[in-house]
């Protein structure tokens, strides 16, 4: 599935929720279900700076696609990174680089986009895209 299609699917899922509590509960569930990063990759180098909670992301090429795994010590943050990984993992680096992230707005997580927000959603997106740029260079 293309990034755009996955994003629409996520937006559809979130549109069923009536209030913030249901959204948060869903994010918490997503966080709990997130495929965990291999312990060996939970290094300081893989920590995304700018988050109040710790977030580790690891990227690996499988064929021409980039696969992300991640973890966080805070569960809501883990839910957020789980959503991002669902949208961006197992995609071609060029598609990741070009993807827009408006769907974050549409699923009611806009507040997490503010640069003052300590969970660093902005930093997470930036980091995923940086990985994509790095691996795209490698592929070229």
């Amino acid at each position: 599935m293309q990034i755009q299609d996955i994003q629409e699917e996520i937006v559809d899922e979130f549109s069923m929720f009536e209030d913030w509590m249901q959204r948060y509960e869903y994010m918490i569930d997503l966080g709990k279900a997130l495929p965990l990063i291999d312990e060996q990759y939970k290094t300081d180098d893989n920590i995304i700076k700018g988050c109040q909670s710790k977030v580790w992301v690891h990227a690996e090429l499988e064929g021409d696609k980039l696969v992300f795994t991640a973890d966080s010590d805070a569960i809501i943050t883990k839910g957020i990174i789980a959503i991002l990984i669902r949208a961006f993992s197992n995609q071609k680096p060029t598609d990741i680089i070009e993807a827009n992230t408006d769907f974050i707005d549409e699923i009611g997580l806009k507040e997490h986009l503010s640069p003052t927000r300590a969970n660093g959603l902005v930093s997470m997106i930036k980091q995923l895209k940086l990985y994509a740029v790095a691996y795209q260079t490698q592929l070229n």
Binding site: M21, I75, T77, A118
Partner: peptide, 12 residues
Amino acid sequence: VHPYDIGSILDK
């Protein structure tokens, strides 16, 4: 529980 998670829900 991470303090950040509690703070986020309290904010709501």
